[in-house]
Simulated assay, not measured.
Amino acid sequence: MSRNTSAAPRPQLVNWDIAASTAASLTPAGPTMTPAEIARAVQNMRELADASVGHVHAISRLDAARDLRDSELLIVDRASWSKANAQSFRTLMEPALDQLAATRPDILTSASLALGGTLTGAQLGAILAFLSSKVLGQYDPFVASRNGAGGRLMLVAPNIISVERELNVDPSDFRLWVCLHEQTHRVQFAAAPWLKDHMTAHIGQLTTGLMGKADSLSERLGAAVKSIGSGRSRGKGEGTDGVPPQEAGVLSILQDPEDKALLSHLTAVMSLLEGHANVVMDGVDGSIVPSVKTIRRRFNARGKSRGPLEKVIRQLMGLDAKMRQYSDGSKFVRRVVGQTGMDGFNAVWESAEHLPTEREIHTPDEWIDRMSLRRHG
C-alpha cells in the first residue's frame, strides 16, 4: 500500500477565490443599455483610448508615448474589474506570503488560519465590490499583458457611462478625458521601466512586515475602526501626521517605523503618478476636448455630494486622505513644470533616486534643488 507523501496545501491568509466570487456577487449592476448601445460605446472607447496616446505624447514630452503598443486594452464591466483586481492583489502578495512561509511557518500553521483566510477574502471582495462602481479606469502594471511587456489598461464602461450621464457632458469628450489619465499611467511605466519592479519590491516588503504581525492585525484593524467613530464624535481635528483621525482609516494599523517609512515612500510615488496623470489630462485645450473645463468643474463638484454611508466607507478605507495626496501630487507636478519646464520635470523618470520623497511632494522646491534643475526666471 503506497503512502501519499505530497505536502498538504499551504493555508491561505487570503482566500483569493472567495475574494473574487464575493466581489462578483456583490457588484451592483450598471446602467441599462441595449446590446447595440453597448457595442457602440465599447468601440468608441477603444478608438478614443488609441487616439489619446498621441495627446499624452504631445503634453508629457515623453518619447515612451510615441506609438506605444506594449499593453492590453480591456473594456470591462464591474464584475470583471473586481476579478481582475483580486488577481492583481494576489500577484503582489503571493511573493510575500511565500517568504513568510519560509521565515515564519508558525503563522501559516494556525488552526484558525483557514477561517481567517475565508473571512479576509470575503472582506477584500466586499471592498472590491464597493470600488467597482467608483473606478472609471485603471492601468495595472503588475499583471502582464498578453500583448507585450506592459500591463493591462482597463476602462470600466458602466461607470464611465453612468458618470457622463450624471454630469450631463458630451460622452466622447468625457471618455477621451478619462483615457488621457489612464494612458498617462501606462506611459509612466513605459518611460520608467524600472518602476514596476521598484514598486513591487516595496509593496512586498510592506506586505511581508504586515503579514509577519498577522496575530495582531485584527486587533489593530478594530482599533482603526474605533478611531473613526471617535474621530467623528469629536469633530474635525488632525492627528500627529496631519491626517484627520476620522480619515486615517485602515492606514492607522501601521505601527512600526519601517512600515511607516515604506508607506511614506509608496504614498509619494502614488501621489506623483496620480498628480502627473491629472496634469496631463487637464493639459488638453478646447481643440482636443472642447468641454474640458465643464467636465472638470462638474466632476469636482460631484465629489461633494456623496451620501452619509459612502462617506463612512471612504473614511474607513482612507480614500479621502488618498484623494488629498493626489491633489498634493498635482500641485507638485505643476510647481516643478512651472519652474523647470516639462523636460526638467521628466528627470523624475530616470531612476528611483529621482523619485520625490513624501516631504518633497509638499515642498517641490526642495526636489528641484536636489535635482539641481535650473529654474525659469
Rank of each mutant, 00 (worst) to 15 (best):
V169H: 01
L119D: 05
Q315V: 05
S162K: 14
P356N: 10
Q255A: 05
G116R: 13
W16D: 03
H354N: 15
F189E: 08
Q339W: 14
K134I: 07
D170F: 07
E72Q: 08
V156F: 00
L355D: 13
V156R: 00
I313P: 06
L217W: 03
D215R: 00
R46D: 12
L217A: 02
M45A: 07
G338L: 13
A144M: 11
Q138I: 12
R314N: 15
G338E: 13
F142S: 03
W16N: 01
T120R: 15
R104F: 04
V14R: 01
I313F: 15
R186L: 14
G275I: 05
W349G: 06
G344F: 07
S264M: 15
P95Q: 04
D77H: 11
G209C: 01
H185I: 08
V250W: 04
T34I: 02
A23H: 02
R374C: 02
R297Q: 14
A101C: 01
L113P: 01
S351A: 08
E310S: 09
G286H: 09
T267M: 14
R359M: 10
G249R: 09
L217K: 01
N278K: 14
F345V: 09
I253D: 01
G239P: 10
D285E: 01
S80H: 08
L319T: 15
A301R: 15
I361F: 02
R324W: 09
G318E: 08
L115D: 13
S6V: 02
I203Y: 15
S112M: 13
G237C: 08
W177F: 11
I75P: 05
Q138D: 12
L100P: 01
A23W: 06
V225Y: 02
A157G: 00
R334F: 14
N159R: 00
Q99D: 11
V292R: 09
T103W: 00
W367P: 05
R302L: 15
Q99E: 13
G204K: 05
A223H: 12
A86K: 06
W367Y: 05
R375T: 00
F299V: 07
E72N: 02
V289L: 05
G235D: 08
A20L: 05
N278D: 15
D343W: 02
S60G: 02
S145I: 09
G303N: 07
A29W: 03
N346L: 10
Q246A: 11
D282M: 14
N346A: 03
Q87H: 10
D98H: 06
P171W: 01
G275H: 06
T267Q: 12
N300E: 09
L167K: 10
K213R: 13
R302H: 02
D282A: 13
E72I: 00
S233K: 12
R3T: 12
R152F: 04
L62T: 03
V169D: 12
R298D: 07
T32P: 00
S112C: 10
V269F: 07
T207M: 12
V243P: 06
V337A: 08
P95N: 03
E366F: 08
G283A: 09
L319D: 14
A191L: 04
M199R: 10
R359K: 11
G283M: 14
V280I: 14
T5E: 08
T91I: 00
A268N: 00
S291F: 11
A301K: 09
D241C: 04
V292S: 04
E350K: 15
R306W: 12
R186I: 04
H354R: 14
S71H: 09
Q123N: 10
D259F: 07
R220T: 00
T103I: 12
W349H: 15
R66W: 12
Q246W: 07
